[in-house]
Computed example of a mutant assay.
Amino acid sequence: MIESKPKMTFHVESVRVDSHSSISKCKNAKITLDTDILGNTDAFNPAELLLSALSACIIKGVERTVPILQFQLHSIEVIVDGVRQDVPPRMESIFYKIIVDSEESEQRLNLLHENIKKFGTVFNTIAPGTNLNGILVRRQN
Rank of each mutant, 00 (worst) to 15 (best):
H20N: 09
I99A: 00
N131L: 13
S19I: 12
E114K: 14
V15L: 13
E48A: 02
V66L: 05
L49A: 07
V15S: 13
F44S: 09
L73F: 00
I126K: 01
T41W: 08
L69A: 11
S75R: 11
V83Y: 09
I76V: 15
E48G: 02
E48R: 01
L51G: 02
V78A: 08
F123D: 02
K30T: 15
S105N: 01
N40Q: 00
A43G: 00
L112H: 04
S24E: 07
V122Q: 03
V66A: 07
L38K: 15
F119K: 12
D34V: 03
I58V: 12
K30G: 13
I99C: 01
E92H: 10
A53T: 05
T125E: 04
I126F: 02
H113I: 09
T130V: 13
V83W: 08
L69G: 05
T130E: 04
I76M: 12
F10Y: 14
S102V: 03
V100E: 01
D101N: 10
L51S: 01
H20T: 06
T32K: 15
D86H: 13
K30V: 12
R16G: 13
N124V: 02
I99V: 09
S102T: 12
F71W: 06
L51N: 00
L112R: 05
P128G: 03
I58Q: 07
S105W: 01
D101L: 06
S55E: 07
P88F: 04
K118A: 09
S14F: 08
L33C: 06
D18I: 07
D36H: 10
N28A: 15
P67R: 04
S75L: 08
D18V: 06
I98D: 02
R108W: 02
A127N: 00
S93H: 04
L49Q: 09
D36V: 05
